[in-house]
Design a protein around this nucleic acid. Structure first.
Lengths: 165, 165
DNA sequence: TGGGCATTCTTGGGATAGCATGGGACGGCA
DNA sequence: TGCCGTCCCATGCTATCCCAAGAATGCCCA
C-alpha cells in the first residue's frame, strides 16, 4: 500500500487538472492500480480525501465486519462509496478534479496535497493554513507531545494483546 | 461482480429513458448479463435499488441459508424478488424506468444514480440531497470518522481470528 | 567549489473520441 | 387501425488523449 508524506501545492488549470506530486506518484507506482486514485469528500473537513486501490480494498473489506452497526455501514456506503470517484491520471501524471469535489473543498486555482500515510488530503491552500493554525493552537493548549502519544499507544497495544481479552 | 461507485445525475426524457452512467456500464460489462439490470423499490427509502444478475444470484443463494428465519425470508421474497423488474438497456446504454418504480421514487425529470459497491440506488435528486443532509447530521452528531471505523473493524477482525475464540 | 548540462516535473493548449440526450421511424400488440 | 414500446440515427457537449515548452532541480565535470 502506498505511503504519502509531506505537503505539496500545485496549480489547477482551467480544465480542472492538477499534477499529482511526483513523490506521491512514486508511491502509487507500487500499488495494484498505479494510475488510478480514489477521491472523496472528507467526512470531517472541507477537504478531499484520496487513496489508492489497495486502501479501498481494505476499507471495503472492513465494511463486511459484523462489528459495524447498520447505521454506520449505511453512512459509509452513502458518503464514501457513493461519493467516491475513481480518477485516472494522464500520461503527465495529472488528474482532473471532479467539479463537485473541487467545489466542496473550495479549490479553484491551487490545491495543497497533504500526505497522511495511507491516504492523503487535498485542501484549498488558505483553508489548510487556517486548519493548521487551529490545530496547532490545540496542541499548545492541551500540551500534547509526540513521545507522550507513542507511549500511550504502545501501552494500549500491550494490554490488548497480552493481559487483556 | 460489478462494483458501483460515485454519484451521477442524468436526465429522464419524455419516454422515461435514462442513461446508465458510463462507469456503471463498464462495471456491468464484466458481468454475466451485461445489458440487463434488475431494479426494485428500496425497503428503507423512497428510492430504487439496482444490481446485476450476479448479485441477484448471490442473494438468491443466501435465501437458502438455514440461519435466516422464516419472517426474513418471506420478507425478502415478497419485497425484493416479488418487486424485481429486469430492465434491458438499448444500444446507447439507456434503460426505461418502469412507471410504477419511477412513481415510487418520485422521479420525473432527473435521476441520481448512487453507487453502493455491489448495488446502486436511484433517487430523485432533491430527495437524495435531503437524505444526505440527514445522514451528515448524524455523522457530526456521533463524531464519526473513517479511520475510526477502519480501526474498529480491523480490531474486531483480529480478535475474531487471532486472540479470541 | 562553482558553473554548466541534463533530466524530471509542472504547466499549457489543441484535437479527438465518447457520452448524454433528443427526435423520428418501424414493428408489435391490443 | 391506433397506441405503445423498441430500435435507429443525429448532435452538442464534455472529458480524454496527445503534443509542447518553461521552470526547477540535481548531477557532473572542470
Amino acid at each position: 500500500m502506498a505511503v504519502f508524506l509531506s505537503t505539496y501545492v500545485n496549480k489547477v488549470d482551467r480544465k480542472g487538472r492538477v499534477s499529482i506530486p511526483a513523490q506521491f506518484r512514486q508511491s502509487l507506482a507500487k500499488t495494484s492500480a498505479p494510475s488510478t486514485v480514489y477521491l472523496w469528500p472528507s467526512l470531517n473537513h472541507q477537504a478531499l480525501e484520496g487513496a489508492d486501490q489497495d486502501y479501498l480494498d481494505v476499507l471495503s473489506e472492513s465494511l463486511e465486519s459484523p462489528d459495524l452497526d447498520a447505521d454506520e455501514r449505511d453512512m459509509i456506503e452513502t458518503f464514501i462509496f457513493g461519493k467516491l470517484i475513481p480518477v485516472s491520471s494522464d500520461a503527465e501524471g495529472r488528474i482532473v478534479l471532479p467539479k463537485e469535489l473541487a467545489e466542496f473543498a473550495g479549490i479553484t486555482e491551487e490545491a495543497a496535497f497533504i500526505g497522511r500515510r495511507k491516504t492523503f488530503q487535498i485542501w484549498e491552500p488558505d483553508a489548510l493554513k487556517a486548519h493548521e493554525a487551529a490545530l496547532r493552537e490545540q496542541v499548545v493548549r492541551k500540551d500534547i507531545s509526540l513521545s507522550q502519544i507513542v507511549a500511550k499507544a504502545s501501552r494500549g497495544a500491550a494490554s490488548r494483546s497480552g493481559e487483556g481479552a
